[in-house]
Design a protein around this nucleic acid. Structure first.
Lengths: 196, 196
DNA sequence: CTCTAATGCGAATATGTATTCGCATTCAAT
DNA sequence: ATTGAATGCGAATACATATTCGCATTAGAG
């Protein structure tokens, strides 16, 4: 951030800009999200925008930081693998994932689609680390001598498979494949892969 | 295409423009690939470019049509599931996939990353249909009464899981996860899911 | 060889977007 | 109430990119 907001009004201005960034992403997509548009949506002058942000990228980064917090919080509410069975846990996580992708008018969808040109690492780390920890705990409990290096590979594969299959499905309005079936299939695949 | 090339020189010009589009994508990425740059790389005037193409999008589409042909040809050379075992077939397909992603200086990588804003359907159909046919044949042979609707879900999940996990891995230079391990893991996951 | 349609050119024009800067307004400490 | 710092503004400027059009050149049919 270019300059720290000191007064109340400027802090609110910064918030409204971040909020507006989200709406611009949903309405116009990352490509056509411009600083001018964001300022317009926020009801703020472009000049003011540049007082606090370097540009579009900085705004998106600030937005993603905020969202990463929401995701982390949502993850903490999910059932853990040691209380429920593995299948229930995976199923819950996948349903949570779909719910997130459909929330906020598709904001998350747009962000994940554009992972390769966004500062995705922070968010990805949240997910990656959470699932890593989750599986680590589970496997330490059930298969005490499980090789840990292999676990990293598995978590990488599972996380990306699930995430992008969900995004691909949510991005196309293909009524031929019902979301419930995709969710069930993903659960089958993941549980099978993680336990054999 | 805006106008049909009738003479020899113009046909060659069109080819060189498509070729240049590929190089521009590799060198500058989709975002910074412009009509002017493509014309420059091709050693052609922008004016000539617009004689035959509506703009960037049309050029990329022409390029992808060409590449779809290459992919289809490559797929036909892969071992089929009825001659070899399922595991060998899946393993071969995944290795083929990685090879493609690494070929042409990462052109395919850039294209798949940007699937959501490209006319991907033609290429996706090639893949989808090929694997659909492949699995259909395999399962008709081995499990005569297999439900076909479910197969569509499975192929969708497997195709996207494999493709995007590969792309994600190839996009980051994370030496922690070796490509061979990812390939082996994907094979395990897919074979397990398709046979249980 | 001749001649016309096809081709190729690139400066010029139009548009979209990023970013700044001088001035007006407001806050909050005194 | 006064005043300096903070804030907000948006026209103006700079730059990137898309697209056209009149003119020069060339291919290749006859």
């Amino acid at each position: 951030m270019r300059k720290q907001p000191r007064q109340q009004r400027s802090r609110q201005l910064v918030d409204s800009l971040i909020e507006a960034t989200g709406r611009a992403l949903v309405e116009h997509g990352l490509d056509h999200t411009t600083t001018v548009r964001i300022a317009e949506i926020a009801g703020v002058s472009v000049g003011s925008l540049y007082q606090y942000f370097e540009g579009k990228e900085a705004l998106v980064e600030a937005l993603m930081d905020k969202l990463a917090g929401d995701i982390a919080q949502g993850l903490r509410r999910l059932p853990l693998a040691d209380s429920a069975g593995l299948r229930e846990t995976v199923d819950g996580a996948i349903r949570f994932g779909f719910a997130v992708l459909h929330s906020r008018d598709g904001l998350y969808l747009e962000l994940v689609r554009n992972w390769h040109r966004l500062p995705t690492n922070r968010v990805a780390d949240v997910l990656q680390q959470h699932f890593m920890e989750l599986s680590r705990l589970y496997f330490i409990k059930h298969y005490r001598d499980y090789p840990i290096e292999d676990l990293q590979v598995r978590v990488f594969i599972v996380a990306n498979s699930v995430l992008f299959t969900m995004v691909r499905h949510a991005s196309q309005n293909d009524a031929l494949l019902r979301e419930d079936d995709i969710a069930a299939g993903l659960t089958d695949m993941v549980v099978g892969y993680m336990t054999h």
